[in-house]
Nucleic acid binder design. Sequence first.
RNA 1: GGCGGCAUAGCCAAGUGGUAAGGCCGAGGUCUGCAAAACCUCCAUCCGGCGGUUCAAAUCCGCCUGCCGCCUCCA
Length: 470
Amino acid sequence: MKDTKITVYNSLSKEKEIFTPNNPPIINIYTCGPTVYDHSHIGHSRSAITWDFIVRFLRYVGYQVNWTRNITDIDDKIINKSKEININPEKVARIYTYSFHEDMIALGVDWPDYEPRATQYLPQMIDFIKGLIEKNHAYAIDSDVYFSIASYSEYGKLKGQSITELEKGFGRIEPNPKKKHPLDFALWKSIKTKDEYGFDSPWGKGRPGWHLECSAMNYALYEKCLDIHGGGDDLIFPHHENEIAQSEAFTKSRFSKYWLHNGMIMVNGKKMAKSDGNFITIKEALKKSSPDALRFFILNSHYRMPLNYTEEGITAAENGINRLKETILNTQLEPNNNYINLNFENEFTKEFIEVLSDDFNSPQALSILFKLADKINLEKDRNTKLEAQHTLIHLSKILGFNITNDITGINETIKDRIFSNMIESLMGWRTDFKSNKDYKNADKIRELLTQCKVEVKDLPNNDYKWHIKL
RNA sequence: GGCGGCAUAGCCAAGUGGUAAGGCCGAGGUCUGCAAAACCUCCAUCCGGCGGUUCAAAUCCGCCUGCCGCCUCCA
């Protein structure tokens, strides 16, 4: 275990606190994953990259981290999508879970240790509800079950408002006459029509409320108090507030010691929303930038701050990460041979750990990588340079970068595009040659392309088409 | 309406009492067959506005302005 005091901003206390896990060196961390009803957007990438790098860092300093990130595969949105594309909800969820995994792999986000899905935890959720009813924290009406917020005295502590204060902001929600209190929320929702997607329960066929899965999964996986619960700051209320209420009412003990929330990604200065037309998927984003550039863009601002996604910002990030990569590429990296005893415990590493220990200040950590790059480019002594080079690689891995990739770290989509552009350029030349009746050179280009497995077909009016023929 | 957050150079972005990290862009130079890279120099007397506290504030307090978020599904 490295000797460092980590401080974290706890949304619960609204203060930076010294991080002291319940049972060091073990850290149990749970972060809210996506609802799989569509391709994931860049907001999900921020969340995923944030928790990925935090987990990497905690492991680096010596903690044994158990990271859980759930997949919400039961939800009204999934059902709506299912109707829209006429594919059953279960399959819709599988399709977009796959898509999410593709994105995570592309982004270089580590797999969490556990990835529970709501559908796998129905018995646990049902037991959880039963327990809450027994303890008078929930009540069933018809075939619905609601959590009674009045039964939990600390309701509102995460949001930082009392129940009375919360009620004031409640004018916009149509009251549900079934509920005892307007803020009561569903634990189990009955189906409205017979053929609706649902699961059997003691209260009839229905579906679990959204907040329930996280509580039930945590209880099943960790039982005791979590060290860290994370998620986007849009989840603070009501999602996380309700999780706390359910779990603490159920276990009569603290649910999570620390609550960490990442800021939202904005596009055109506004939070992403399909209705605002500023929705960008991870797959789209990766057509415009390399995964490392997206990671750089995200890590270049503090995880709690809002972040505005712009083309300019992405370009700056791409150029920035490329400079780090080129530093390694252009300075003849020698392998870390045994005959040199490399020391990573140098001033750079020390400072790097120090800034990340202060509520995971990744922007400052990045600035240290650039200081290392400067040193590498200026250093004349071979051994000192070698140490700096390997330190740079070593530290950038903690942030999840792979700077020893080829220069651009480009993905297949971008390669495809470049490849197509090259062929189109060659074909442009060929057309010029043909127009000048320089068939010798035109044929050379065709030959060259054929050797590269690209077959060219001429069409009337100097038009053409090409395809790959292996 | 209730609650919370943010405002730092052309752009992005750290910095919570001691006198503005870092990145991108840009300018000039060294090097160079050309280009790239690298290196050197320059690029906020100032941190939304107005007051206050202090020997000292971007940093603390008050007020104002602007933007954003949550309160409805949301990473």
